[in-house]
């Protein structure tokens, strides 16, 4: 079955991204397809490569990046939510005249249309938020 996942809270403050990660891993292990993971609201903050969690804690961004590489996951960060919160990829940083970008490997920035498209194309849509 084809699943679409929404993550709508940021890492560490909320458990949402951890729950989504555990769910995605379990779904993949059962042979389901994860068509897309869409990060919205503060969920976009999961995709910054500049976070430095303590060594003895889970590394949320790195977990997602590794899972995406292993399973060719499509991790999409909402551009409108990202711009509000200072998440930029290289193209967008250049276009907006910013001096840095911070998107982690395995994530891409795109529009809200990707969320709707995910809902249309997936058999099930599940949101992890607060």
């Amino acid at each position: 079955m084809k699943f679409g996942i929404v993550v709508s809270e940021g890492p560490y403050t909320h458990q949402a991204s951890d729950s989504a990660y555990n769910f995605v891993k379990a779904a993949l292990a059962k042979g389901h397809e994860i068509a897309r993971v869409f990060f919205y609201h503060d969920g976009v903050n999961v995709g910054t490569r500049l976070s430095i969690p303590p060594q003895d804690d889970r590394q949320i961004q790195k977990q997602w990046t590794a899972l995406a590489a292993e399973h060719k996951l499509d991790l999409v960060i909402c551009i409108a939510a990202a711009q509000r919160r200072g998440l930029l990829d290289e193209n967008e940083a250049t276009r907006q005249g910013k001096d840095a970008n911070n998107i982690a490997e395995g994530f891409r920035i795109s529009g809200l249309g990707q969320l709707i498209e995910m809902g249309i194309q997936c058999d099930r849509t599940i949101t992890f938020g607060d």
Partner: peptide, 20 residues
């Protein structure tokens, strides 16, 4: 249930409503 059971519940039901 565990996460496997969570996945099964999502698959078995026609839709998921997440009460945020």
């Amino acid at each position: 249930i565990d996460y496997d059971g969570f996945v099964d519940l999502v698959a078995e039901n026609d839709r998921t409503q997440n009460w945020l």
